[in-house]
Design a protein around this nucleic acid. Structure first.
Lengths: 218, 218
DNA sequence: CCCACACTCACACAATGATGTGACTTACAA
DNA sequence: TTGTAAGTCACATCATTGTGTGAGTGTGGG
């Protein structure tokens, strides 16, 4: 049986806090764990209210949502925290992400979307607006086109196809997944894997993966 | 007057390539710049076909989509590249992001969503599935709230026993072997491994081994 | 005292993987 | 031409892994 998702709100604007509370309280499957106007007491709030998801306004008097986020994550890393903001401001996005935010939405997000976001974050997703997603990607350091990329045939004597299959094994693919991905039959996958085992002198997927990773066969 | 968005497809699976081509060719506002089975000639492909958006299969024989992506970005950083993959739990997400991917979708994405994604990326967004978005966030270095706080609990909060079992998995041990080696029952091994899977967010031995080795959980 | 959690074990069923055997096509080189 | 190797597919059978459910013990903290 599924337990309700307990949601805790941090939002300094009284009106918005009230309407968010109403929205959540009136939604089946959700439960309002609390609705607070500041996050100066996050640690105790969390242990007292035991939320599954926190909606955190990023701009609050006293302590910023970012700092609140850090504190939450330091005591309860498992709690999902979705940041709410008015502007898609780049610096704060970066700070929030680094502090461990699980999502990043605009306050103007329509209520329905907000509920979707809660489900999404519970399901292991990371709700964010497209524009923010793009910013996040840009925050990554670009790796220059790797000089002297060695064309490199297989260090072991694996055929191209076998190497390909091995790579997928290393990625955690099952036989079925490999068959689907490569558009070949399950038996063909078996066939390739049998050969790979012979060549690598192993007799299970785990051994193959381990050997591949350790010997840089990837 | 809006110009059509020119889309170039890299996908080694002939069937999928054909259906994608059809889909795009039949959509107003889009224009199929090309549909290729490998990305060994990206530089010339790009200058010849001049796409605005590239849909790039991440697993292709010969040269991976990641490398293709790098090359595209090195000659034409302005081109938006959306990576396509079959399964999302994939550490190559990181490589792709670092190489400059502008989006990351599953191949099973319904056609309509795919078209949406193309619009989105053109509009400056970053289309990706929720699960991938979450992975991306996790790739960020966490700023520890306590300065220089590496008192070091388990890197992935695995218990001692769990860590021990994981090590054996990495060594290629089967359930039976682990049970024998540690002098515990097969069911107990199952039990530990179930917990390990939960904590590492994986669903198979291979995934666990791969994650362990790549994240230095050994 | 009670709760959370690590660790242990059991049973059952479904899903996947491992292995053997055989076969057909294509490509390439002896 | 013939042999070898890659790549494809099929079928059968057994072993192993994955998952759900439940439960007993011990330890440490609130």
């Amino acid at each position: 049986m599924e337990k309700n998702t307990r949601v805790l709100i941090y939002e300094d604007n009284t009106d918005l806090r009230a309407s968010l509370s109403q929205l959540l309280a009136g939604t089946p499957g959700l439960e309002l764990a609390g609705a607070l106007g500041n996050c100066t007491q996050t640690e105790t709030d969390i242990s007292r209210l035991r939320p599954d998801v926190v909606l955190m306004d990023i701009d609050m008097p006293g302590m910023t949502g970012i700092e609140g986020l850090r504190r939450i994550k330091s005591v309860s890393p498992g709690v999902s925290v979705v940041m709410l903001t008015v502007f898609e401001d780049n610096d704060r996005v970066f700070d929030a992400i680094c502090a461990g935010a699980d999502g990043y939405l605009l306050k103007k997000t329509p209520p329905v979307k907000l509920l979707d976001a809660i489900s999404e974050v519970r399901a292991g997703g990371a709700p964010m607006t497209p524009a923010i997603a793009r910013q996040v990607l840009k925050l990554f350091p670009r790796t220059p086109p790797k000089a002297a990329a060695p064309p490199e045939d297989s260090p072991a004597n694996l055929s191209a196809r076998e190497q390909e299959v091995l790579n997928l094994l290393v990625e955690g693919y099952s036989y079925k997944m490999i068959a689907a991905d490569r558009g070949i039959s399950l038996d063909t996958v078996r066939s390739h894997i049998k050969k790979i085992y012979e060549k690598l002198h192993v007799r299970s997927m785990t051994e193959a993966v381990s050997k591949a990773l350790r010997q840089g066969l990837t």
